[in-house]
Design a binder for these strands. Sequence first.
DNA 1: AACCTCAACAACCGCCGCTTG
DNA 2: CCAAGCGGCGGTTGTTGAGGT
Length: 291
Amino acid sequence: MGRSPCCEQAHTNKGAWTKEEDQRLIAYIKAHGEGCWRSLPKAAGLLRCGKSCRLRWINYLRPDLKRGNFTEEEDELIIKFHELFGNKWSLIAGRLPGRTDNEIKNYWNTHIKRKLLARGIDPQTHRPVGAAATAPGQQQQQHYQLEAQKRHVAALAAFSPGHQHQQQQDHLEAISDSPEACSRSSDDEPRSSATPPPPEPAPPRRHLDIDLNLSISLAPYQPPEEPMEPLKQEAAATLTNNATAAVCLCLNSLGYRPGVECVCGGAAASAARQGQWARSFLQAAPCYRGQ
DNA sequence: AACCTCAACAACCGCCGCTTG
DNA sequence: CCAAGCGGCGGTTGTTGAGGT
């Protein structure tokens, strides 16, 4: 359906922002706060469209942006989160304080993709490259993709209760239960909830927490020549070792708000220093949301 | 010094979901 | 209930600067 452009294209600047424009935007938001992007440009005396202002603020001018190089820890986090969420850059950015979705997206495309390929890992499936060479391999690849989709949907469901992710989960469970149905599964996770659920009755549901815990452990890098452990084994191992670890992803370890203690207590910070922080990032969200 | 290539990243575009009248 | 508006998101493009020839 046709929609009018968000702003008068003829009367707006495009391209790089000038210092003066930045100052105007910063001053306005400092005085009035964020929001109402459509009317902001006019009110702030800017010849920009609201979207452009929002983007500039969120990606560049916001005071809590970290900027600077990504650390190794952040690299590994991004990889893990991408394995979980797929190209949901905003979700990933939401768990990396001080980083924006645009920044992470760019970093993924320019650095991490290459890094994973160098490791022999497909950046999309997070599985060894070339696993689909043979027919059995193809089946294996489909299995990997399906598992990745399940983790993805489970994670989305965990973060967005109330949406129809449960239906998608049920759908994926149904698919995985019938091998011949594997070939029917689409490559892409549906973006909207328009995909109808399968007519067959839903199989027993898997507990979300189990699935999530499995997927988010920072497993040591495995060289490509060693076949990846099946997800369930990795999950079982993670659960055995860390079943009781409710570690907050307290981001002090990432340099975020240095010296500020997380609401979840000191145990989180010490665990973070020991490299366990990524296991329970779910608990971390409240620690920096709404900064 | 001039030119070319490529990486990095800022910004734009178009679509989608939610909200509102 | 429906259509329009708005904010937000992800994909893509454009620009710039560094490094190589």
